[in-house]
């Protein structure tokens, strides 16, 4: 029924090319998958195992049960770190969202030089906080920074020493964190605002709704997906925050601004408590995973069901 015109040799060459073509994509993808499996998941497993051992200076495969977790959870500095993370996380997420939305709405009013303003609100995200923290540290310095500026300008009763005040230092981290990330949230909201159907807004204003009412009743409710994204991204950034503290307070004064991330680093690299470092890292991961996995699942699933 079939006649093949080409010679057997050509067919074999062709079939090898075809054989390769079928497997080539997977072959090329394989190294990346392997790297991810080893250096992300393998290392997660490694750290997890380590967190159940007696490792101190060097990894030691001696089973310790949940000892390290008990040590971390009973550690005064960890309590401070978790408490700080709560304060920082809640304020950081909340203020970033409110400020980001406010600036996005302001920018959405047909503003001149919108591009320049956008660039100004977003640049903190493009710079390392190790860099900008240097400036913040100085601005917050009671002797030389804002306090002195206020005094020079004639407000002699102005007092601002939060950065060296154990009770208040964590709030300076919030200020700097908000300064860094709120522009990013602004950008997310602005993109969301630009995606809203203008006809709906025209219809609402023909119905007699005022501009604030249109925002409150019609526009902001439509930004729900942006709120979800911003919430998830900010929360996970809050948990991962590290440089903010290192650059601004070095976890001090004392350990008043300790966060889980600095706790982990200190125990792993300077206090020779690998086991505790690992245990704290695992707890950080689990918290992030609890937030990110459902989010990523819905994000990856979403496009697929709609495009296929």
């Amino acid at each position: 029924m079939m006649t093949i015109a080409s010679s057997p040799r050509q067919t074999r060459a062709a079939s090898f090319a075809d054989w390769l073509e079928v497997r080539l994509p997977k072959l090329v993808l394989a190294p990346s998958v392997l790297i991810t499996l080893v250096f992300v998941y393998g290392f997660i497993a490694w750290t997890s195992i380590l967190s159940f051992t007696r490792s101190k200076t060097i990894p030691k495969m001696e089973w310790a049960g949940v000892l390290q977790y008990a040590k971390v959870l009973g550690h005064e500095r960890w309590h401070v770190a978790v408490h700080n993370l709560m304060i920082f996380g809640v304020l950081y997420v909340l203020i970033c969202m409110v400020l980001g939305l406010l600036i996005a709405i302001l920018l959405d009013q047909r503003i001149r030089h919108e591009g320049t303003l956008r660039a100004i609100f977003l640049y903190p995200m493009a710079l390392s906080f190790i860099v900008t923290g240097t400036a913040w540290k100085w601005i917050l310095n009671p002797g030389l920074g804002l306090e002195k500026l206020a005094h020079d300008w004639g407000w002699s009763s102005f007092h601002f020493d939060w950065i060296i005040n154990e009770q208040m230092a964590i709030y300076t981290i919030v200020i700097a964190g908000v300064w860094q990330a709120s522009g990013f949230v602004m950008a997310m909201f602005l993109a969301g605002l630009r995606g809203i159907d203008q006809d709906v807004i025209k219809a609402a204003s023909m119905d007699g709704a005022s501009l604030p009412l249109i925002y409150w009743r019609i526009i902001i409710p439509q930004l729900k997906p942006v709120f979800v994204s911003a919430l998830v991204i900010l929360t996970h950034l809050a948990i991962k925050s590290y440089e903010l503290v290192v650059a601004l307070t070095g976890a001090g004064p004392g350990y008043a601004t300790e966060l889980p991330s600095t706790f982990m680093y200190a125990h792993t690299f300077t206090r020779n408590q690998l086991g505790m470092g690992a245990a704290s890292a695992v707890m950080m991961l689990l918290t992030v995973a609890a937030i990110m996995v459902p989010y990523l699942y819905s994000e990856v699933r979403g496009p697929r069901t709609s495009s296929h």
């Binding site: 994509p25 997977k26 993808l29 990346s32 998958v33 991810t36 499996l37 250096f39 992300v40 998941y41 393998g42 290392f43 997660i44 490694w46 750290t47 380590l50 990894p59 996970h236 948990i239 991962k240 991330s261 982990m264 680093y265 792993t268 690998l274 470092g277 690992a278 704290s280 890292a281 695992v282 950080m284 991961l285 992030v288 995973a289 990110m292 996995v293 990523l296 699942y297 990856v300 697929r304």
Partner: peptide, 29 residues
């Protein structure tokens, strides 16, 4: 191919892990 989205999800999650979780093994490696 079959399972490509799962692989993508696996890779994607790597973007968001707190890197503290890989510090110790990576230093050793």
């Amino acid at each position: 191919f079959k399972g490509d989205n799962l692989l993508f999800g696996l890779i994607l999650f790597g973007c968001f892990i707190p890197f503290q979780i890989v510090l110790i093994p990576m230093a050793a490696f």
